[in-house]
Simulated scan of single mutants.
Amino acid sequence: MTSPALETFLDVNVERISFRPDQLSPQQIRDKLSNGEFVELADVPGLVWKKTSDRVPGGRDYAQNAGPEHPNHYADIDEPDSEGKTLRDLTLAGTEFMSVENWRTWYQKNRHTDAKSQGLLPFRVWQIFGEMVRQLQAKNDTKFLCAAGVLAHYVGDACQPLHGFYHSDGYRDAKGATTKS
């Protein structure tokens, strides 16, 4: 951190953003959720938004494991299309390809017609980082902190090897069939 004020601000609010490292256990997360306790901001995208509202207040799924939040947690950037080009190749070749619309079109052409199979993680990170900048410029510490906490979840997802690998649910053959390993 280059800004002592920002470092202090984040340190004071760490428990709003995420668990402290010595408290991060699956059982503690389950206990907090089942008791209706506060959910740390970094866990909201996975533990609240990816649930149905009848199970968790604020849930965005319209059915179990089906809703608008799911594509935001990964991106299969290494899957080749029929010409051997990947999303990574196309995106690095020119900024004109860097749009949700172009990525969705690529997914559609490559047999990924269900929205939940069209990973858009980089765009979610970009979107929330932009919100952080807007809130910082507006001097709205509360909204800045909220965006920073939520962004921590997606940046964590981006660091998970299988969140960017098209074989993450098992080996896919050339026809798209999946074999679980």
Score class of each variant (00 low, 15 high):
residue 2 T to L: 14
residue 3 S to E: 09
residue 4 P to H: 08
residue 5 A to E: 15
residue 5 A to F: 13
residue 8 T to Q: 15
residue 11 D to K: 14
residue 16 R to F: 10
residue 17 I to D: 06
residue 19 F to M: 06
residue 19 F to D: 09
residue 20 R to H: 11
residue 22 D to L: 08
residue 23 Q to K: 15
residue 24 L to Y: 13
residue 24 L to M: 13
residue 26 P to N: 11
residue 27 Q to T: 12
residue 27 Q to L: 14
residue 32 K to N: 12
residue 32 K to Q: 12
residue 35 N to R: 15
residue 35 N to K: 14
residue 36 G to D: 10
residue 41 L to V: 03
residue 42 A to G: 14
residue 42 A to P: 02
residue 44 V to N: 01
residue 45 P to C: 10
residue 46 G to D: 07
residue 48 V to F: 04
residue 49 W to Q: 03
residue 49 W to R: 00
residue 53 S to Q: 09
residue 54 D to E: 09
residue 59 G to P: 00
residue 60 R to A: 14
residue 64 Q to D: 09
residue 69 E to R: 03
residue 70 H to P: 01
residue 70 H to L: 04
residue 73 H to L: 01
residue 73 H to R: 04
residue 80 P to I: 08
residue 83 E to T: 13
residue 84 G to N: 07
residue 87 L to P: 02
residue 88 R to N: 06
residue 89 D to E: 09
residue 93 A to I: 05
residue 97 F to N: 15
residue 98 M to Q: 13
residue 98 M to K: 07
residue 99 S to D: 05
residue 100 V to Y: 03
residue 101 E to G: 05
residue 104 R to W: 04
residue 105 T to W: 07
residue 109 K to D: 15
residue 110 N to V: 08
residue 113 T to Q: 11
residue 116 K to N: 12
residue 120 L to V: 05
residue 122 P to L: 08
residue 125 V to F: 03
residue 126 W to Q: 14
residue 126 W to A: 07
residue 126 W to N: 11
residue 126 W to G: 00
residue 129 F to G: 00
residue 129 F to M: 10
residue 132 M to V: 14
residue 134 R to L: 11
residue 136 L to V: 10
residue 136 L to A: 15
residue 137 Q to A: 14
residue 143 K to C: 00
residue 145 L to G: 06
residue 147 A to P: 05
residue 148 A to R: 02
residue 151 L to P: 04
residue 151 L to W: 08
residue 154 Y to E: 05
residue 155 V to C: 08
residue 160 Q to W: 15
residue 161 P to R: 02
residue 162 L to F: 07
residue 164 G to N: 12
residue 165 F to S: 04
residue 172 R to N: 05
residue 172 R to K: 14
residue 173 D to K: 09
residue 176 G to F: 09
residue 177 A to W: 07
residue 180 K to C: 05
residue 181 S to C: 03
